[in-house]
C-alpha cells in the first residue's frame, strides 16, 4: 500500500513537473511576440506613462492604420511578397528537377554532386555580398527585385533539392516505370504521374523557401537602395534607424511582417522535421 502510494505520488510529481516545464517553454516562446503586439496596440501617450505594464489600460489600432496609410510599408510588403513568391516558385521548379535526379538516377559523380550541394549549405554567403554587388551592377540587377530573386533562388535551391529528394523517395519507382512501359517518356511520366503525387511536398518546399526569402536581410540591404523597391526587412530597418522613437509604428509594422511568416508556418508545420533535416542545416 505504502509502495503504491509513493509511486503514485512520484507519477503525480512527474506529471506536474512535465507540465510546468512545458508551460515555461510555451511562455518563453510567446512572450516576445506578445510584447511586440502589446506595444503595437498601446496608444503613444500611455506607452511611457504605464511603463512595463503587461497590458495597457486602453488599446488602439491607430498605429496599424498609420503604417498602412501614411508610410511606405505597403510598398515594402508588396515587394517582399513579389520577391518571396517568385523565389519560392522558381526554386520549387528547379529543385523538383534536381531532387528527382538525385532520387531516381544512379550515375557517376552523384555522391560528389550531393556533397557539393551540402557544402553550399555551410558556405558563408556573407562573403559573396561584395562580389555579387560588383557583378550585378553592370547587368542592371542592382536595385532591382529581379536581382534579389536570382540571388535568393540560387541560394535556396540546394536545400530545397534535398527536401524534394526526400519527398520523391516516398513515391514508389514502379509508378513511372509503368507509365514509361505504357509509352510515356520519362519527363511525361514525371509530369503526369509523379508530380501530382508530390504536390504536398512541393507545397512544403514552397513554404520553406517563401519563409527564407521573406527573412533575408543582408543581401537586400546591399542590393536595394530605392525606397519603393525595398523589401520588408530593409524597409523596417531603415524606418527603425530613421524614426527610432516611433515605437507604435515600428512594432505595428513588425507585427504585419510576422503575419505571412506565421501563415506559412501553419502550412508547413507538418513537414518541419523533413525540412530541417534536409541538408541538416537549414536555419
Amino acid at each position: 500500500m505504502v509502495v503504491a502510494g509513493t509511486s503514485q505520488l512520484r507519477r503525480r510529481l512527474g506529471f506536474f513537473g512535465h507540465w510546468l516545464a512545458l508551460a515555461l517553454y510555451v511562455l518563453a516562446a510567446l512572450f516576445p511576440l506578445f510584447w511586440l503586439v502589446k506595444i503595437a496596440v498601446t496608444p503613444t501617450d500611455l506607452l511611457f506613462g504605464e511603463g512595463i505594464r503587461l497590458w495597457p489600460s486602453s488599446t488602439t489600432l491607430g498605429n496599424f492604420a498609420t503604417v498602412l496609410r501614411a508610410t511606405d510599408f505597403p510598398w515594402y510588403f508588396l515587394n517582399s511578397v513579389i520577391v518571396s513568391l517568385c523565389t519560392a516558385a522558381a526554386v520549387t521548379v528547379v529543385a523538383s528537377l534536381s531532387g528527382y535526379a538525385l532520387s531516381r538516377f544512379a550515375f557517376r559523380w552523384k555522391n560528389a554532386v550531393a556533397f557539393f550541394l551540402l557544402l553550399t549549405q555551410i558556405f558563408p554567403l556573407v562573403m559573396l555580398i561584395a562580389p555579387i554587388y560588383r557583378l550585378m551592377t553592370p547587368l542592371g540587377l542592382v536595385d532591382s527585385l529581379m536581382g534579389l530573386i536570382l540571388v535568393y533562388t540560387a541560394y535556396n535551391t540546394p536545400f530545397a533539392t534535398f527536401l524534394m529528394q526526400s519527398f520523391f523517395e516516398g513515391i514508389p519507382k514502379g509508378l513511372e516505370e509503368a507509365a514509361m512501359i505504357d509509352g510515356c517518356t520519362r519527363f511525361q511520366a514525371l509530369w503526369r504521374v509523379i508530380l501530382p503525387l508530390t504536390l504536398p511536398g512541393m507545397g512544403a518546399t514552397l513554404g520553406f523557401v517563401f519563409t527564407a526569402a521573406w527573412s533575408e536581410l543582408l543581401f537586400a540591404l546591399m542590393l536595394i537602395s530605392t525606397e519603393t523597391r525595398m523589401t520588408f526587412p530593409v524597409g523596417l530597418l531603415t524606418f527603425v534607424s530613421k524614426f527610432s522613437v516611433d515605437w507604435g509604428q515600428m512594432t505595428a509594422a513588425a507585427v504585419l511582417a510576422l503575419i505571412p511568416a506565421c501563415a506559412f508556418f501553419a502550412v508547413i508545420q507538418r513537414y518541419l522535421v523533413q525540412g530541417l533535416t534536409a541538408g541538416a542545416v537549414k536555419g
Binding site: 516576445p32 511576440l33 511586440l36 526587412p233 511582417a257 510576422l258 508545420q269
Partner: peptide, 15 residues
Amino acid sequence: VFLPWAVPSFLSGLT
C-alpha cells in the same frame, strides 16, 4: 514552442 523558428531572424533581433 516551434513558432520562434518561423519568426524572420531580423524580426527576432528587433523584438
